[in-house]
Amino acid sequence: MADSKFRRALNYSFLQEMDEIPPQYELERKYVFSQDFEEKMKKLIKSVNKKYVYAFGLVLPRYAIGILMIVIAGSVVLMLRSRNILDRSTARLVFSVAELLVLLMFGVSLKSAGSKMTTSIQTGFSDTDEETPATELEFDIPVSPVNYSKSNEYRTTTLHTVEYKDAVGRIIYYERIPINGGVLTKIDTPDNINSCKVHQWEAIWFEKNGQTHLVWADSLYRYILKGDCETGTLIKMAESLYK
């Protein structure tokens, strides 16, 4: 896809719009969901977890669709048989094939879903972030202050800047500046700059004031990530943005 001026402008206008959305903690204070909504969402998430089927805008159990399809297939075969279009053995064969197909599509999945059902019901809906794998979130950088584990602390310092304290107490400073706009942060870099890669993007890292700095740019932003940790850790954190 060509990176035309129009594409960049559209992207930038959307990024601006997204940045105008108040931070998560403000929204959490502003909007308290009703019990009805929570219940409805609980049902939706459960239905998703228990492998329901969305049909005609309705959430229907997968096995019910399977039964319905067997009934329809049976009716069609009987109708064809009554009109002498199919002989007895062909009708049996057609119905068996249809039944097998339906069982393969719905029955087998239902069986595998059944074994996971108990776990799904237990973990299917949670108002907390408890089920988020801690090992993954530990290194996730909050792109905007919406993604954080509740055990962690964060503080928005400017529109694109976040100080992030991870589970083991390391403070990581993260800054994101749109390429087509925003104020460019000036960094006084020391002489010993090392090059590396973040995902597919060229990056540099250096040590300054006891902190490791990692700087890179992708097609949308320039990023600065610094903290009292090893380069590998910073790169791992940076790459979590592109997961």
């Binding site: 502003k30 969901f33 089927v53 999945s109 108002d127």
Partner: peptide
Amino acid sequence: SLLDDQEDRSKFTLLYNTYRHTMMH
């Protein structure tokens, strides 16, 4: 279009927990 594996199911819940307030706004 069903959400077939455990990863997808967790992802849907995570989406809900992460973005419901933004979507509400």
